[in-house]
Amino acid sequence: MLVDALTALQDWAPAAWLRHARWTYAAVNTAHITGIALLFGAIIPLDLRLIGWRREFPIRVLARVLLPVAVAGFCLAVTAGFFLFSVRAVEYAGLRLFWVKIALIVCALTNAWLLHHALQWEAAQGDVGVTPPPSLRMAGALSIALWLSVIVCGRMLAFVD
């Protein structure tokens, strides 16, 4: 059943067209990488602040600047990623590494969601010069580790069969 859905996806006209496109395929690749760059580049400074780096800046200030960029980057990466996947849906879905990557993305999003809804997150918004609580430090470190793992898995997808 999953195979039927995946076959339908890669037979879908835009996917079939993209499979034989030269510059559009390259452009979608570029969009995927740009999305990753925005997400990772924006989330790492915030994660480091949560761990305790540069604690002279309140989390609120950094989050207002960095979170929208990270969210936009994530949306771009997912959209472009969907199209890259659609070109060879059955093949990618057959790779264990692909599902490891998806699982890691789910973990990273869960970590972000839990952090955002934690009481400690609210309480620490305006803190300056104090060591963040352990739960925030943990969430920050976990975020870095998870997103880094997602990137490693994604890149390695091109090198396995």
Binding site: V100, A145, V152
Partner: peptide, 9 residues
Amino acid sequence: AALLGGAVF
């Protein structure tokens, strides 16, 4: 994270 990536690879 590096170990996980390495192991998968």
